[in-house]
């Protein structure tokens, strides 16, 4: 492994670690809070501030970082630039939203709470991976 790859992998580990701590401090790793945030009749607005905090930091940082011609440890950017609004984008996001509200987990918190050994987390992560594989296997049959 060359030194660039070691640097890229070290950053990836620390970013993943900080991301997990952020999720836990923010409350995203407690499905009851996520469900409370998505409940109109007894709304718990606290999780709104997770988005506010994350977006405030990244929205300021993004244009500054992109002023560089390339990232520090790579020769090119790997940022998606698609603009097309597709049926897949809408239907996929709708299915994800239903799953998010049903379980109270999105992918990051699911993985972060694996450390609890809680059966519900393990089932969630397992079935999420099955769902991902299922999409890749059934994608060719989709007519849109």
């Amino acid at each position: 492994m060359n030194s660039k790859i070691i640097k890229i992998n070290s950053v990836s580990f620390f970013a993943g670690f900080i991301f997990a701590i952020g999720l836990a401090i923010s409350g995203m790793t407690q499905p009851q809070k996520v469900i409370g945030f998505l409940n109109f009749s007894d709304w718990d607005p606290s999780l709104l501030f997770v988005m506010v905090g994350a977006i405030c930091v990244h929205m300021v940082a993004y244009p500054l970082v992109r002023k560089r011609s390339s990232p520090l440890f790579d020769v090119q950017w790997h940022v998606p630039d698609r603009k097309d609004i597709t049926s897949r984008l809408i239907l996929g996001s709708a299915l994800f939203g239903l799953g998010w509200g049903l379980g109270g987990f999105c992918p990051g918190p699911g993985l972060t709470t694996l450390a609890t050994g809680d059966l519900r987390t393990i089932i969630f992560v397992g079935s999420m991976i099955v769902g991902m594989i299922l999409f890749k296997k059934t994608e060719i049959y989709l007519k849109f």
Partner: peptide, 11 residues
């Protein structure tokens, strides 16, 4: 929920 999240996020 896991199936929906996995399938939906990739789609």
């Amino acid at each position: 929920a896991g199936l929906l999240v996995g399938y939906g996020t990739v789609m």
